[in-house]
Design a protein around this nucleic acid. Structure first.
Ligand SMILES: [Mn+2]
Ligand SMILES: [Mn+2]
Ligand SMILES: [Mn+2]
Ligand SMILES: [Mn+2]
Lengths: 218, 218
DNA sequence: CGCAAATGTTTGGCTAGCCTAATCTTATTG
DNA sequence: CAATAAGATTAGGCTAGCCAAACATTTGCG
C-alpha cells in the first residue's frame, strides 16, 4: 500500500516525463519544485521508490517510471479526474474549485469505490478541464489538441481544454465567457507580442499570448 | 488544521465518553485499545490535544472533550455517516462495506464538499446502520431505542439500527433476512441463556443473547 | 579542453506517531 | 491500612518526510 506522499511523487514523475508540451525529463530539482519540497527530500524519496521498483533511477541519472509505477500513477490520475468530474457534475462545484479537493480524494484506497464512481458518472471520458480520464485498464484516449496561440487569424475552433488548472487562470477564463466546447473565432493576432483578438458567443476580447498558450482547442 | 491521527483520537474520545450503552469514561488504556496503539502513544497524543485545547485533561485524570473538541468530533461523525450514506445510496455498497471506506473519507478537508454532499443526499437523518447523522450545526437527533434482547416475548417491534458495525456481524444480520425497518416478532426467550426465537418476513430464526443485544429496535 | 555553473547527493537534524521497558500514581482488597 | 494490581506516564528509540549546509558530479561554455 503506497503512502499519500509516495503517490504524489509518482504522479509528479508522470506529469514531468510525459508532459505533453515540453517532453522534458524529470530531474531532482524540477520534481522537488513541482512538489514544493527541497531537492534533498526528493533524492531520499527517489531512492525509496527505486527500492520499491516503482521507478528506474541511478544516481545522477535519468528518472523514469517503471511499468508498475506508471500503472500506479495513471490510476491516481484516473481517480483525480473522476473525483473532479463528480464534484463538478453532481455537487455543483465550479471548475476552479475541484482540483484542490480532488488532490485529497485521489488518495482514498478502494478499488470498488472508484469503479462504482466511474459507473455512477456514466463512464465519463473527460474531466471538467477537458483532460482525458484513463479507463479502468489504465488506457488513456488522447485527443488531438493545440494551443489557441497556434490557430491562424480568420479561422474558427472549439475550446476543448486548458493547460493551466490554477484557480486564478480558470476564473479569468470563465470571466471572459469561455468554457469547454465554446466556439472561438480568431479575429486578429499582433505580431509584436502574440496577443489575439478573439470572438465567442458574440462577444470579443483581447488576450495575451501567455493566455492563448493555455487554452487548448481542436 | 487537524491531522488524520488527531481527528481519530477526538472521535475515539467522543465514542468512549458518550457511549450510549455504558456511559463509561475514556482512560488511556481504553483509548489506546480502541485505536490499536499502545497506552504510551495515547498519553503523548493526549498531551498534544490538551495543548491544542481540544480536550480537558490532567495527568492521571479524567479525559473529556472541550467544547471545541466536541464540535470537531461531531463534525467528523457527520462526515463519516454522510459518506456511508453516499456509498450505500448512490454507489450500491452494502452496509457491511461502507464503514472502512468512510473511515478514510471522513478526513477529507472541505466544508463545501460536505455541505454539498448533504444536499445531494437530500439531508438524510440516518446512515445505513441506523445511526443519526448530525446536521451542519452539529446537532444530533437522538432516537429512542433499546436492544432486541430487552423486548418481551409475544410482542413485536421494528429494527431501527445495530450496535456493532463489524462486517461479520452485519453479514450475519443480512443473512437472517434482517435489515433496518424490518418488523420483528419475539416468539419466545430461553431463560437459560437469553437466546430468542424471532420471526420476521414470515421466517423464524433463533438468535443468541449476544446477537440480540446488538440489534436496536424502537 | 578546462573550469564554472547547474544539478544532484550526503550528512546531520527536525517533528509526528509509534514502540518497549521502566517508573510512578491510583485503586482495590485482605 | 498496607501491599499488590491496575492504570498512566516517562525515557529512550524507531521510521517517514522534511530541511539546511556541505559535498560530488555533470553540463556547458569560453
Ligand atoms: Mn486537477
Ligand atoms: Mn495528491
Ligand atoms: Mn461507520
Ligand atoms: Mn478515521
Amino acid at each position: 500500500m503506497l503512502s499519500f506522499t509516495e503517490e504524489n511523487y509518482l504522479k509528479a514523475v508522470l506529469k514531468l516525463t510525459v508532459n505533453g508540451d515540453t517532453k522534458s525529463d524529470a530531474g531532482t530539482n524540477k520534481l522537488a519544485a513541482y512538489l514544493n519540497v527541497k531537492p534533498a527530500t526528493a533524492t531520499d524519496m527517489l531512492k525509496k521508490l527505486k527500492e520499491k521498483k516503482l521507478i528506474d533511477y541511478e544516481k545522477y541519472g535519468k528518472i523514469t517510471l517503471s511499468e508498475t509505477g506508471k500503472l500506479k500513477a495513471v490510476e491516481i490520475i484516473r481517480k483525480h479526474r473522476l473525483w473532479e468530474t463528480f464534484l463538478f457534475e453532481k455537487l455543483d462545484f465550479t471548475w476552479d474549485e475541484v482540483h484542490e479537493v480532488a488532490e485529497q480524494l485521489e488518495h482514498i484506497h478502494s478499488p470498488k469505490l472508484i469503479d462504482k464512481l466511474d459507473e455512477f458518472l456514466g463512464y465519463p471520458s473527460f474531466d471538467p478541464h477537458g483532460d482525458a480520464i484513463p479507463n479502468a485498464k489504465g488506457e488513456l484516449r488522447i485527443a488531438k489538441q493545440k494551443p489557441l496561440s497556434a490557430v491562424s487569424p480568420e479561422t474558427s475552433c472549439k475550446m476543448i481544454g486548458v493547460r493551466d488548472n490554477s484557480t486564478t487562470f480558470l476564473k479569468y477564463v470563465t470571466q471572459l465567457g469561455l468554457a469547454i466546447n465554446t466556439s472561438i473565432k480568431i479575429i486578429s493576432r499582433q505580431e509584436f507580442d502574440g496577443s489575439m483578438e478573439i470572438e465567442m458567443n458574440g462577444k470579443t476580447a483581447t488576450v495575451s499570448q501567455k493566455f492563448a498558450e493555455n487554452i487548448l482547442v481542436d
